[in-house]
């Protein structure tokens, strides 16, 4: 009983904090930190002997991390029953796009130095780059349609259908990583497993079994696109 009450109290405190006017700026600044840190390392020789390759790597990893965090918002909101979490989903998704953009710019502009012929050959000839570019195209479309105005213009149903492709981007992003490393390495599979886990949570949440078991315990939020 007491623990239950305490949990409710904690949840209320967290909700209040998340609803505060400082919550979004705080998350915004936090999301910029990896970028700032990478730039700092780049400027001070901290990226090692091959700073360009390391820059491409770091921006790519952060794009994938933010994409997974964005995908974790809804399951986390459902599990913790803290609806205020939804406020941050769009921003985190846009950061995933921003890091992916930085990743692509570092690759095209610095690594290949705008050798468009080489970039095009990479995209069509190297499956891991094809897949990565696919993820980037999806994220670009989602970022471009992320405004309230675009939600209205597309209409809720079409907008939601379009934004479901974020799962394709997540899968492609993880595969991009799995495919680019040499030999059998663990880290890319950790990302893939986290992605799989997040998808599984969604499926479990919307399955008839969940609705049957969970009915009456808590409301199912059908409105997941809002912020």
């Amino acid at each position: 009983m007491a623990t239950g009450l305490r949990a409710i109290g904690l949840r209320a405190t967290i909700s209040t904090a998340l609803m505060s006017r400082w919550a979004k700026p705080a998350v915004f600044v936090a999301a910029l930190l990896p970028m700032a840190w990478t730039f700092w390392l780049a400027g001070t020789g901290g990226l090692g002997a091959e700073p360009i390759a390391e820059g491409v790597r770091q921006t790519g990893l952060w794009a994938l991390r933010f994409l997974l965090i964005a995908l974790a918002v809804t399951p986390l909101r459902q599990l913790t029953r803290v609806p205020a979490l939804a406020r941050f989903r769009r921003m985190i998704g846009l950061f995933a796009f921003a890091y992916a953009l930085l990743h692509v710019l570092t690759y095209v502009g610095i690594d290949q130095f705008f050798d468009w012929g080489a970039v095009w050959k990479d995209i069509v000839k190297r499956p891991y780059i094809t897949v990565g570019m696919g993820a980037f195209v999806i994220l670009t479309a989602l970022a471009a349609t992320s405004t309230n105005g675009m939600v209205k213009r597309l209409g809720g149903r079409r907008w939601r259908a379009l934004h479901k492709t974020v799962f394709a981007a997540g899968l492609a992003g993880c595969f991009h990583y799995v495919m680019l490393v040499k030999g059998w390495q663990i880290p890319p599979f950790v990302y893939l497993a986290v992605f799989g886990g997040l998808v599984a949570l969604r499926l479990a949440w919307t399955s008839p079994w969940r609705i049957a078991v969970g009915a009456g315990r808590q409301p199912i939020f059908s409105r997941s696109g809002g912020d």
Binding site: E50, I52, A53, A118, K121, K125, R126, Y128, L180
Partner: peptide
């Protein structure tokens, strides 16, 4: 299959 071997970056 994963890297063009046409060029390289000298570290």
């Amino acid at each position: 299959p994963r890297w063009s071997q046409a060029n390289e970056r000298r570290v």
